[in-house]
Design a protein around this nucleic acid. Sequence first.
DNA 1: TTTAAACATGTCGTAATTGACATGTTTAAA
DNA 2: TTTAAACATGTCAATTACGACATGTTTAAA
Lengths: 183, 183
Amino acid sequence: MGTLRYAILGLLNRRDMSGYDLTKEFETTLAEFWGAKHSQIYPELKALADEGLIAYQIEISGTVLEKKVYSITVRGRTALRTWAETQLKMKSVPKDEFRLQLYFSDCIPPRRRIALLEPQLEQHRALLDHLRENLAGLGQTPPEDEAAFSDYLVLLGGVMREESCCAWLERCIALCRERLEKQ
Amino acid sequence: MGTLRYAILGLLNRRDMSGYDLTKEFETTLAEFWGAKHSQIYPELKALADEGLIAYQIEISGTVLEKKVYSITVRGRTALRTWAETQLKMKSVPKDEFRLQLYFSDCIPPRRRIALLEPQLEQHRALLDHLRENLAGLGQTPPEDEAAFSDYLVLLGGVMREESCCAWLERCIALCRERLEKQ
DNA sequence: TTTAAACATGTCGTAATTGACATGTTTAAA
DNA sequence: TTTAAACATGTCAATTACGACATGTTTAAA
C-alpha cells in the first residue's frame, strides 16, 4: 500500500522536519502503531521529493553540518488528504508472535507456559503505564484542537488495547495456575 | 526471525498435512494471529524438508494427482520445543494503518472521521461475533486437553481484544458526535 | 580538554511477504 | 455431461523492512 509515505506526509503536514526528526517521531509518538527505521525513511524522503510531494531546504547546524529540512507541498497535502479519506479494510492479520507461541504451547510443560505469560504481562503493563502518562499529559477532557483531538482518540485506543491485553494475560495466568493445582 | 517455520512445525506437530491443508489452516484457525500465503508456504516446506525438520510421503488422490503429506521429524519437534520455550520480546510495532489514519485525521472534515470509524466498527463487530462463536464451540469451561486449552487461551484473547477494540471505536464515534454538536 | 551522547545522512545485502502467473486434477452439483 | 468449485503445487517479480556498514559533526558533561 505504501503506507510509510503517508505517515511521513502526515508528520510533515504538522510541522517541517529533517529525516532525523522524522526518525525520532517514529520512535516515540508513532511507535504505538507504526514504525520505520532511518534506513527506510531516507530513501522514501528522496522518492517523495522526486515526486514533488515534499520539498526541502538545507540548513547549517554549527559551521558545516548540513541538515535537510523537509516541508509538505500542495500536491503532498492533496495526496495526504486523499489517503486520509480512504476507507481502509481492517488488516486481517495483526501478526502476533506471542499468541502463536501460546497457541502451540501444548508442546511444553504447563509450568513453562506461565513462565512465558508473566514477562509478557510485565511488558504490557509497562507500556500501559507509559500510555496512561501520555494520555494524562493531554488533559482530562478531549482536547478542542483538531490535531490534539486525533492524538487523544488514538492514545485512548492504545490505553484500552493494553488494558484489555493485561486483563487477558492475568486471566491466562490465573487459569494456568488453577489447572496446575487441579492435577 | 523465521517465525513462519515454527507456525508450520506447530501445525504439523498436531497432525500430518499437505501444503494445501496448511494453507487452509493459515486462512482459518491461525488467521487471528498469523498469516501466510501458499506462495510462502511451499518454499518454506521445501527448506524445512531439506533441513530434515519435516519429511513427506506422496499420496495419490484419484488416479494421478500427487499430494505431499508432510509430517514433523524428531529434529523438527526439538526445534519447535526450543522456540516454544523462548522468551519473546513484545513486538513494539503492531502496525495498524487505521490508527495511523485516525492520528492524521485532523486534515479531513470532522464528519468524515465518523465515516471512517463506522465501517471499522462494523468489521470488528463481525470479527468479534465470529470469534465468540468459535469460543462457544470449545465449551463453556476451559478444556482439559492440553492442545484445546492452548486454543482456548488464544481465542479468549482474540475475543477480549476485539471487545476492547469495539468499545474504543464506539467511544470514538460518541466523542466525535458530541464534538460536532457542540460546534 | 577529552570524550560520550546526540545529531545527521546515507547505502547495501538480505529476509519476509504479496500478488500474479502458471498448470493441472478431482469432486459434486446442475 | 458439462461445469464450477475445491483440491493441489509450484515460480517469479516487486515491495517492504531490518540490521549492518559507513561517515562525519555538534554539544554538553566530566
